Simulated scan of single mutants.
Amino acid sequence: MQSRSWVEKLKAGSSVTDITASEGISEGRLWKRIRLAFLSPKLVTAILDGTTGQDLTIKKLSARDIPLNWEEQHAKFLC
């Protein structure tokens, strides 16, 4: 997942400006997408298996508030 690599780059000391310049994206897009790095493994598996009960795409998830708490994610996105 690209968002996880961005988190690793930030942890390693890259700046947001460095990442956005190298990826050719806006800072807003980076922050919307980086939240995807914190999805629970159970939710990621359900998305890949198509069993969430919702049509969850990167675009749709990026536009929504994603709680950091995995139980809250399950309540919000898994039926």
Results as ranks from 00 to 15, higher is better:
35 R>C: 11
17 T>V: 06
25 I>N: 02
49 D>M: 09
19 I>H: 10
19 I>Q: 10
43 L>Q: 06
39 L>W: 01
47 I>Y: 00
35 R>S: 13
23 E>W: 00
24 G>N: 09
37 A>W: 01
30 L>P: 00
46 A>W: 00
33 R>D: 10
35 R>G: 14
33 R>T: 12
22 S>G: 06
33 R>I: 11
44 V>N: 10
17 T>A: 12
49 D>P: 00
17 T>W: 11
43 L>G: 09
45 T>A: 11
19 I>E: 15
33 R>Y: 15
16 V>C: 09
20 T>Y: 02
36 L>Q: 05
25 I>A: 09
48 L>K: 11
25 I>C: 07
38 F>W: 13
34 I>G: 09
37 A>S: 15
27 E>H: 15
44 V>F: 07
41 P>R: 09
19 I>T: 05
29 R>I: 04
32 K>L: 04
47 I>Q: 02
32 K>C: 07
48 L>Q: 08
14 S>I: 02
31 W>L: 09
19 I>Y: 13
44 V>E: 12
24 G>D: 15
22 S>P: 00
14 S>W: 11
45 T>V: 07
24 G>W: 03
44 V>Y: 05
33 R>N: 15
34 I>F: 01
35 R>T: 06
16 V>L: 05
13 G>F: 06
49 D>L: 15
41 P>Q: 08
22 S>K: 04
24 G>I: 00
38 F>H: 10
25 I>M: 04
13 G>D: 10
36 L>G: 04
39 L>N: 04
42 K>E: 05
42 K>H: 10
31 W>G: 07
45 T>D: 08
20 T>G: 02
37 A>E: 12
